[in-house]
Design a protein around this nucleic acid. Structure first.
Length: 465
RNA sequence: GCCCCCAUCGUCCAGAGGCCUAGGACGCCGCCCUUUCAAGGCGGUAACGGGGAUUCGAAUUCCCCUGGGGGCACCA
């Protein structure tokens, strides 16, 4: 058997849809696993989609995900001659015909005829419209028979030819539609396996018919992946969710975590170990094992994956990768990541779900005054807060070594004096110094903040009581 | 409406006739650890949509129903 050739063929809509990323990943896995070639093809036969900026987004995002292609990107907008040739051939052979029906007319006829099925009725089949402007070209679909194929994940699929309408293969402006471009390219590019989303399943018969009419050899083997759905089991939509991979990057997800998570949708490793390097997934992956039912894109689970990957990073790597997420922080110093952050980084790393969580964990180190969360302060200021702050200030003033251990011991002693556990005793101190009730371990935070600033904040808080 | 596809815990995946008292993971709920929060440890909750058929035996095979999804553009 010759080496497989697969393709990822996105329409450049301005962002990479997570479902598209999943499709790309599966194609990539299959290619790597089988020693095949992964072709990238941009489906931009629609002029509105054929813009370099839109295409760049796709390329950059695939790159970010670590999904590299072996060939391409081919652009359908640059291959128009092939499609023209195919359309003309079909026209010459009577397999296609011109049609100038307006959409409204088609609909009106369907209504008048009382047909329940909307769609084109073959009105222009025998009109033999001459070449010229204003007419689209439609493919003459068979009136009877069935179109069947074996899908790697779906199994045997069968369509009645009578259910197929005469679809448009060339628009009135002369541009080809997806269906011809798809048939021609898959054939011309020697694609052996067409792996894509289930939403394209019922375009297969049209493409198969086209390939046959054009005299191409055996069609590719199809594999239709289950759709990614939301909590209501609907296809992920741009309106309601973050569907752009770019959004997840901005939200601080790591590409390796994201890709690993994507691989577990519609497929699972035989040993049940889900979090693992892509290289292992390549070894374990099999197209035949892909699930048929829609898969819910569960961000909670993605979070878990991301946390695991985040904590597994070396400290240096973590700092390097989290740094861009401080770009929007006006308080971040020019030399960021500075020494203060480096000292805090391991503690921050333990507590992040995404990289974007980091700034809020250390902002108090850089702000002149911490931003006090009123609700948190309200709680912390109750009870013996005044006494704890007074004694805490006194104890911290007397420290000759400003180190976490010493601070810990000092505040623990203050707490004991007032019958408070350390957890209780540290509450007012934490809010006073960091502005929040939760955050990295307190004494390490104070150590890095420094004696002077810590005391100033404690005094300010005491004054506020 | 028509066509196609799908159906195991809330969710993702195991399960390819007896190994299932249905397994793992995320979530959720407890408990432990603890300097808050996380992380970590331990335990728990929770599913084969319904009905027939085949079989000694069905989550696993077949049929029907129900439910869900996708598609029916001069988008892809």
């Amino acid at each position: 058997m010759t080496a497989p050739r697969v393709r990822f063929a996105p329409a450049p809509t301005g962002y990479l849809h997570v479902g598209g990323a999943r499709t790309a990943l599966v194609n990539w896995l299959f290619a790597r696993k089988t020693g095949g070639t992964f072709v990238l093809r941009i489906e931009d036969t629609d002029a509105a989609l054929s813009r370099p900026a839109l295409i760049d987004v796709v390329l950059r995002t695939l790159d970010w995900l670590g999904i590299g292609w072996d060939e391409g990107p081919h652009r359908q907008s640059e291959r128009l001659a092939y499609y023209d040739l195919a359309v003309n051939t079909l026209l010459d052979e009577g397999r296609a015909y011109r049609c100038d029906c307006a959409r409204d007319d088609v609909e009106a006829r369907a209504r008048d005829a009382g047909r329940k099925t909307p769609g084109y009725d073959g009105y222009c089949r025998e009109r033999a419209l001459p070449p010229g402007a204003g007419a689209a070209v439609r493919f003459r679909t068979p009136d009877e028979g069935t179109v069947e194929f074996d899908d790697v994940v779906r199994g045997h699929v069968s369509f009645a030819a009578s259910d197929l309408v005469d679809f448009v293969i060339q628009r009135a402006d002369g541009s080809p539609t997806f269906l011809v471009a798809n048939a021609v390219d898959d054939a011309e590019m020697g694609i052996t396996h067409a792996i894509r989303g289930e939403d394209l399943l019922n375009t297969v018969p049209s493409v198969l018919l086209l390939m046959d009419a054009l005299g191409y050899g055996p069609p590719p083997t199809y594999a239709h992946l289950p759709l990614l759905v939301d909590e209501a089991r609907k296809k992920l939509s741009k309106r309601r969710h973050s569907v752009a991979v770019e959004d997840y990057r901005e939200q601080g997800y790591l590409p390796e975590a994201f890709v690993n998570f994507l691989a577990t949708l519609g497929w699972g490793p035989p040993d049940g170990v889900e979090i693992r390097p892509l290289t292992e997934i390549v070894d374990l992956f099999a197209l035949e094992d892909v699930t048929k039912a829609g898969a819910y894109f569960d961000v909670k689970k993605l979070d878990h994956f991301n946390g695991e990957y985040l904590r597994a990073l070396t400290p240096d790597d973590f700092v390097a990768r989290v740094t861009p997420f401080f770009g929007d922080a006006t308080w971040a110093p020019p030399d960021f990541p500075d020494e203060r952050f480096s000292r805090m980084a391991p503690l921050v790393q333990e507590r992040c779900v995404t990289l974007a969580d980091a700034p809020a964990l250390v902002d108090f180190l850089y702000l002149d005054e911490p931003e006090i969360d009123e609700a948190a302060w309200g709680k912390a200021a109750q009870g013996q807060a005044a006494a704890v702050l007074d004694d805490g200030i006194a104890a911290f003033e007397g420290l000759d070594e400003w180190r976490a251990e010493a601070l810990h011991a000092a505040l623990a002693e203050v707490g004991e004096r007032h019958g408070l556990k350390l957890g209780k005793a540290q509450a007012p101190v934490r809010v006073a110094v960091t502005g929040r009730s939760v955050g990295p371990p307190l004494f390490e935070s104070l150590e890095v903040l420094g004696q002077e600033r810590t005391l100033a904040r404690l005094r300010a808080a005491r004054a506020r009581l």
